[in-house]
Design a protein around this nucleic acid. Structure first.
Lengths: 246, 246
DNA sequence: CGACTTATTGACAATAGTCAACACTCGTGG
DNA sequence: CCACGAGTGTTGACTATTGTCAATAAGTCG
């Protein structure tokens, strides 16, 4: 398989790598002064283009950088020796990849592009160094890590206490909210992943996912045509999630 | 419910709070020079004693500190509005509590002592400040956060792809390994949590947990008497986990 | 000791998984 | 440009696993 293309930044666009980026309010702390902003521009040393189905990194590879997604869509997954294979997350533009690698200095999971994507490479040593000097950056980085912990706790809740349809409803609501956050339509979108990948993420078999989609369509909650999804009744989906066996 | 007792440290034991602690190799980076060690002693401002069934903190409370467990045993759990309730982790001596609070400046989960416990309170502002000055401390802290991310990924794998008996086997093996790491017997121990709490953690009902325990006993893998567990065939348990539907 | 919580076990029900057939989509090459 | 084929998605019939309900036993704490 091909390697992703690395585009080293020239002195010129180094200078404006982050300060000009329209995702910067997602990556960077607000209220930095000019000096700090200039320093931060040196944080991104390279961009990478990753084509659909290419790996951004693989489990076991040395960990050197985390990645901010500029455009595109990724999945992360883990493959254990005994043949288990599970998707641990789907990431879209404005989100961060690779935080799990810090723990052992090696990547724990694989990151695979589900569509042609474009990422900023943030060398971790440099991030640590800068965050020692720029307090708001340090704070922001810690929040990112903590947010990842909380996100995973949410999935633990989902996997541990929801039934199939509740899981899929929660998945759709979550995806929809993140789409809106990035400026896309929250009610109509194209799934980048297969039923099997959704199932793997939700702890379900692909047939169960497919049936749940059909059920939602029959109930008038969504409209499905293969990967194209339209959410017709978001509140209905939300009500589905909110029905624990109290 | 009573509040946990806070014991402010005097100038004298401030000085030796961490450097004398026999858990320091778990909390602190190795190879610090004397000056750094002295600074780090100022990191811990208080100890808390938490009695069985008392909360160390509750979801929604302002986040101010993380906690290192000196002695004892905790669970963390989340209670959602719709009545779902799930244990997200069990923590023992030498482990860190509260990292999820960084994300929103409020605790996300409840931390409850399952036996009388003793914790070090590490004010987060001070930790951030010190880790800006002491690089190895910064590094160590980042590894702690990342390790928590990886731990949760492990649970996602467990919840998403294992069957009841595999989950319980994985749980026992994990507990056993952590016991050994802290210097306790890895083959014989007392469970601090109920079947229901184990079930909640593993995404199973308590009856299923109980049945799996009985099954393991019938198969000669363990010996169970209520909360007292003896592991007779750790490799047998490990084989159970390693049987994915390849 | 006695009330309460926790654990075990059985019978039955519900949910999701398995296996299999078929339909749809998309990309490739004739 | 169309046809073919691999990959993906849908649906049905049946099975396995886990959950539910209930009765009983065993511990625990005041």
């Amino acid at each position: 398989m091909e390697k992703p293309a690395t585009i080293p930044l020239t002195a010129v666009n180094l200078r404006t790598a982050c300060t000009q980026c329209n995702l910067k309010e997602l990556c960077l702390p607000v209220g930095l002064d000019d000096v700090d902003l200039e320093r931060i521009d040196g944080l991104i040393t390279a961009r990478k283009k990753v084509k659909r189905q290419q790996h951004l990194y693989r489990a076991g590879e040395p960990f050197e950088a985390i990645y901010a997604i500029r455009t595109g869509f990724f999945k992360t997954d883990i493959l254990t020796e005994d043949g288990r294979d599970q998707v641990t997350g789907f990431q879209m533009a404005g989100e961060i990849l690779g935080l799990d690698g810090i723990s052992t200095d090696r990547h724990v999971c694989n990151a695979v592009a589900l569509e042609d994507s474009d990422v900023c490479m943030i060398p971790f040593e440099r991030l640590e160094e800068l965050s020692r000097r720029i307090e708001p950056l340090q704070r922001q980085f810690h929040k990112f890590m903590s947010r990842e912990i909380v996100r995973e706790q949410g999935i633990m809740m989902l996997l541990g206490s929801m039934r199939a349809e509740e899981r899929l409803a929660a998945f759709l609501i979550n995806l929809s909210q993140r789409m809106r956050l990035r400026g896309y339509s929250a009610s109509e979108f194209h799934l980048r992943m297969t039923r099997e990948e959704i199932g793997s993420y939700l702890g379900l078999k692909l047939e169960t996912v497919s049936r749940a989609f059909s059920k939602f369509q029959d109930d008038g909650l969504i409209s499905v045509h293969q990967k194209h999804i339209q959410i017709l009744d978001a509140d209905g989906l939300r009500r589905l999630i909110g029905r624990a066996n109290v």
